[in-house]
């Protein structure tokens, strides 16, 4: 698999499909780090493990490089979705981007609790089935219990927050400068523990329809807050109600932005009288 991806990368560079390939390199002292390969010879040192999200890096590279510079990126499923979201949000020009899709293994999918461990454009590897996120024991437990029980559980979890902003900084989709979470109006600054409710709910809600379930926020959290469980429930709601998943279709924007005639809801979460809008439901 590694050899195959190297060959594709070499072809891309030699055929000038892109000016550089962004991937991981095993460098001096066997340290693995992101690298832009610009000649086919260099590609020998390319590696694909471990999982390392490159979407935001690709955005930074494309922003600071010369006009017309084209970049190929070695992506996993989540990375590809993140890039699609960034293209949709006008952060990356689509024409300057090439992706080399690799699939994750079943073990990796399990570890990430990933429901789609493969890219849409798969160049290398076998796509394995995703995990049914909400039926995984650890997630189930977090979302279990009735109101007060769950509230106490989450209050205790979120109170661990030391407000390092790691979840925000590691997120491949968070691009706003300045960010609302730094605004005194929304989240009181200079206090620890953080104003947990506003910080975490605002963060989670802002990503509700753009979250690609890469899990970077959770991995970055030094106090192990299971942030993905919140995103999973909202992703599930969007999937059920609107049949929408972030990062799949580059031409479909979030259904949250459109009216109910253009992006009708399945009626799951919306009140029944929304149905009165449908043409065929005339009484």
């Amino acid at each position: 698999m590694l050899e195959k991806i190297k060959n594709i990368a070499r072809t891309i560079l030699s055929e000038k499909q892109a000016d550089g390939v962004l991937g991981l390199i095993k460098g001096q002292w066997d340290i693995i780090q992101p690298h832009i390969f610009e000649s086919p010879v260099e590609v020998d040192a390319l590696v694909i493990e471990p999982k390392w999200l490159l979407a935001k890096m690709a955005m930074t590279v494309l922003r600071s490089s010369r006009e017309g510079y084209r970049l190929a990126v070695v992506v996993r499923g989540c990375d590809e979705r993140a890039l699609t979201e960034l293209v949709k949000r006008n952060q990356i020009e689509k024409e300057r981007l090439v992706t080399l899709g690799i699939a994750c293994t079943a073990e990796q999918a399990q570890a990430c609790i990933c429901d789609r461990p493969y890219p849409q454009k798969l160049d290398c590897g076998e796509a394995v089935a995703g995990v049914d996120t909400l039926s995984v024991e650890s997630v189930k437990e977090l979302l279990a219990g009735d109101g007060p029980e769950r509230m106490e559980k989450w209050a205790n979890i979120l109170k661990r927050c030391i407000k390092c902003y790691g979840c925000r900084n590691s997120c491949p989709i968070c691009v706003c400068v300045p960010c609302k979470l730094e605004d005194q109006v929304w989240v009181e600054t200079g206090v620890i523990p953080a104003e947990v409710l506003s910080y975490h709910l605002i963060r989670a809600l802002h990503l509700s329809d753009t979250c690609v379930a890469c899990g970077a926020c959770q991995e970055a959290c030094p106090v192990n807050i299971p942030l993905m469980a919140l995103q999973m429930s909202m992703r599930e709601m969007l999937r059920e109600t609107y049949g929408y998943e972030a990062g799949l279709d580059p031409d479909r924007k979030s259904p949250i932005l459109y009216d109910l005639c253009k992006e009708p809801a399945a009626g799951q979460a919306l009140p029944d009288w929304v149905n009165s809008l449908r043409k065929d439901d005339e009484s």
């Binding site: 949000r89 006008n90 952060q91 691009v175 706003c176 400068v177 932005l257």
Partner: peptide, 14 residues
């Protein structure tokens, strides 16, 4: 200065 150009406003404006 603050705008990131995400285009949400364009999509949502009625």
């Amino acid at each position: 200065e603050k705008c990131t150009g995400c285009g949400n406003c364009v999509a949502v404006c009625p």
